[in-house]
Design a protein around this nucleic acid. Structure first.
Lengths: 121, 121
DNA sequence: ATTAATGTATTAAATGAATTAATACAAATA
DNA sequence: TATTTGTATTAATTCATTTAATACATTAAT
């Protein structure tokens, strides 16, 4: 269920994060579902428990899961993964806009670029 | 003329790059002006010649200066620094648009964000 | 209460990319 | 031909990221 490539240059904890998000977006994991305990997943994937813990912490900070000591980690009850990803992407794009503005690009110029790339989407 | 903070966490070669761009944008350095030789600037700034060389190579790749062995390094004859910076910023923004699109944001949504941030600029 | 299962926190080791340095090379000019 | 210049190659260093080792804290089950 959780596949990890220890050789990949993409960090293990990031692979784990992507796994959870992908499984959630695909509907395999549903809101409220329980994730494997840190130690269990670590042992199955052959990685250190802390690596899994870091992935879980990250997922919680991003609102994908809820973790509580003694109980476990669960897909966030009111989560739609794609909406969350979209929200994150919007935030990133906002920062890109600010940065572009600081470099002297006007709002009109930015919209021209958006149009050019999206060809009326 | 060229100030470097060896303690700063921003790399020395980057500080040098910023110095050149800033001086050019401010009109202190004009197209055709000669920059200090690699070794001269290195000795003045108290850094390794290669660090200056890297900054110069970078500036040349970005079109800010022209370097030729035996002659020296010069502010690009047809340069307007701000235009170059703007061009670079536009390219970065294009990539941000593509990335946002890949995350499911539509062109309309992107333009809304641009509007929101630029408040009609 | 006690024990076991769980996530969390702290610290240290390992990894790897980015940065800087040492040195030698190549081209242009005087 | 000697000097000045930028370039190239390689190695050392630095530093943030990643992973690991270990101990702690909270919850639930018995």
């Amino acid at each position: 269920m959780f596949q990890v490539d220890p050789v990949s240059r993409v960090p293990i904890y990031e692979q784990l994060i992507n796994n959870v998000i992908r499984l959630t977006a695909a509907g395999v994991l549903k809101p409220g579902d329980r994730l494997p305990p840190v130690r269990t997943l670590a042992s199955e994937a052959g990685v250190n428990p802390n690596t899994v813990a870091k992935a879980y912490r990250d997922l919680e900070a991003r609102g994908f899961i809820c973790s509580v000591v003694g109980k476990g980690s669960f897909i966030h009850p009111e989560l739609t993964a794609n909406a969350t990803l979209k929200r994150e992407a919007a935030q990133t794009f906002r920062e890109a806009c600010l940065s572009a503005r600081n470099s002297g690009l006007t709002g009109t110029e930015l919209k021209t670029i958006v149009d050019d790339i999206c060809k009326g989407g």
